[in-house]
Amino acid sequence: MSTTINHVAIPSSIFIPGGMFPGRIVRVKGRTPHGARRFGLDFQYNNDIAFHFNPRFTDGHIVRNHYISGSWGNEETSGGLPLRRGHRFEIVFVCHYDRFKVMLNGEHFTDFIHRVPFHRITHFTVGRDIIITEIDFEGTPPPTDYLVLSEENVF
């Protein structure tokens, strides 16, 4: 199952067709303007954020976090900022049972351990200094009985 969205308006909140599940890949292609300061890619549900991915060119790192009931969690900032202003990029998020794996331009960047169960995520939001040419939602969900059994073991 694959869905492609081209030329995404900024800001945008996109319903994730079929939801999040282990093996789901979200591939984001685009570029940043030359004067970019920061942008955000968020996996959301309701008004909360399960995974906030926030490259900050002015600070030289990428913040990863979550936002629940009006409060931010502990930021992760290791790994520097392997993106450059004014350049094209491809960011790939791969959902696993216990984490997101994040690839930047074909290289592993980080893992973000789920702080919120992945099955709650319903939307992917995009904002600030970014131009998105394409977002692909890829993958086939595992059988329901397998997913439920595995979730009980993880959460």
Results as ranks from 00 to 15, higher is better:
S2L: 10
T3Q: 12
N6K: 14
A9W: 02
I10E: 05
P11H: 05
F15H: 14
I16Q: 03
G18E: 03
G19L: 01
F21C: 03
F21E: 03
G23Q: 06
R27E: 13
V28L: 09
G30N: 08
H34Q: 15
H34R: 13
H34Y: 12
F39S: 02
L41C: 06
L41A: 05
Q44N: 14
Y45P: 03
N46F: 09
N47E: 13
D48T: 05
D48Q: 07
F53Y: 13
F53A: 01
P55K: 05
R56K: 11
T58H: 10
I62N: 01
H66W: 12
Y67H: 11
I68N: 06
G70I: 00
S71G: 08
S71N: 13
W72Q: 00
W72L: 00
G73Q: 05
N74H: 10
N74D: 10
N74S: 12
E75T: 09
E76R: 12
E76K: 12
T77K: 12
T77R: 13
G80K: 02
P82N: 00
L83R: 02
L83T: 02
R84Y: 09
R84A: 12
R84K: 14
R85E: 10
H87D: 11
R88A: 13
F89A: 04
I91M: 09
C95G: 00
Y97K: 00
D98H: 12
R99K: 12
F100A: 00
K101V: 11
V102N: 03
N105G: 07
N105V: 08
E107F: 15
F109P: 05
D111G: 08
F112G: 05
I113F: 15
I113P: 14
F118R: 00
R120H: 11
I121R: 01
T122V: 09
H123C: 08
T125F: 01
I130R: 05
I131K: 11
I132S: 05
T133H: 15
I135A: 03
I135G: 02
D136L: 14
F137D: 02
F137Y: 08
G139Y: 06
T140C: 09
P141F: 08
T144G: 02
D145L: 15
L147V: 14
S150I: 09
E151H: 11
N153Y: 14
